[in-house]
Design a protein around this nucleic acid. Sequence first.
DNA 1: GTCTATATGGCGATAGAC
DNA 2: GTCTATCGCCATATAGAC
Lengths: 204, 204
Amino acid sequence: MTTDKKDSTEQKILDAAQKVFIQKGMDGSRMQEIANEAGINKALLHYYFRTKQKLFEAIFKKLIQTAIPDIKEMFFSELSVEKKIAAFVDVYTDLLYNNPYLPLFVLREINRDPHSLAAIMKNQGINPGEVLSVFEKEMAQGNIRRADPRDLLINILSLSIFPVAATPLLSEIFFNGEANEYRDFLRERKTSVKEFILNSITLR
Amino acid sequence: MTTDKKDSTEQKILDAAQKVFIQKGMDGSRMQEIANEAGINKALLHYYFRTKQKLFEAIFKKLIQTAIPDIKEMFFSELSVEKKIAAFVDVYTDLLYNNPYLPLFVLREINRDPHSLAAIMKNQGINPGEVLSVFEKEMAQGNIRRADPRDLLINILSLSIFPVAATPLLSEIFFNGEANEYRDFLRERKTSVKEFILNSITLR
DNA sequence: GTCTATATGGCGATAGAC
DNA sequence: GTCTATCGCCATATAGAC
């Protein structure tokens, strides 16, 4: 490679914008702060991305993709449903361990502008129907406890995502604000969450 | 009563500010919009609350109190631990059914200004220790499955709060953006959540 | 207490030199 | 492509009449 994309100005802007937007959101972020973070000046931001809105959308789309792990291989594998769920919790826990700001960022911005969501989500091919039908089949076969499959999926997502989204709150409550201790706690929680789910759906 | 507090200017401001802040957050809200919502002008906002920051803090403190149901009577009752948990899920589900914006508002603003949290929380006397020790005792007595009591509490909170906080996302995914249908779904979910938790913690 | 008018500063965006 | 300088607007906040 003759040009090192990692060090290109455009890439520096994207990195800086992601860092600022993910923490402070669209409304709370300033172009000046992004420019400082990137080590350039404001004018250059507009030269590359024209408006704050367009810069934000570039970051948002990228992060939405990050936030959706590839569940297809998991749910269309030959694994038992218990193993599929366990694998999903593992993947999602690791993903959010490395991107702890992601959940709150996505929730905040989707709430701010719900319309932009629909369009972007269609592009990402989000389709819970396939996962739900796996659950339905397993329930019909008597492999797991019968329930509304949407509830089961929402429960799995809740247990995986909320503890990360609520980090500032929960680390204060349980660890007197020591975010690093809470972070360690979350990683160890992986096993416990899988047990919690499996204990609940396994027939006795 | 000679003065009707409900119709006082101060109360109109507080109502309007809550409506705007809870939806758009501190950063996304405008004093002009709050003034319009209250049917007054901007200057009067500052006459009563001096700064946007102080007005926001008044709302934030009030909403934090709203967000924390009185769990003492529940957890110090003579009910079985299963019934205590079920009662908690009931209370919290109803609370959030009536205040669906609350979870995301609290998470967003605590993330924005984590320092303000600690002080306010101390004032509210939030002390999970008492709930945790109830769980510990029940686990020691073999009434419920042994686990880290913090995990159990976080699981209960996750299952109760996340589905509400993620309403714009989940109503899009499961109900094509029909928020009212999703809202109904959440209410019916109450039973399912209680079953999910109890199935998981009950010994076989 | 409530209003209109205005001060003050900051932010997104652009012009234009290099 | 990158910079400095600046425009134009909008938001918070204040002054001052009533």
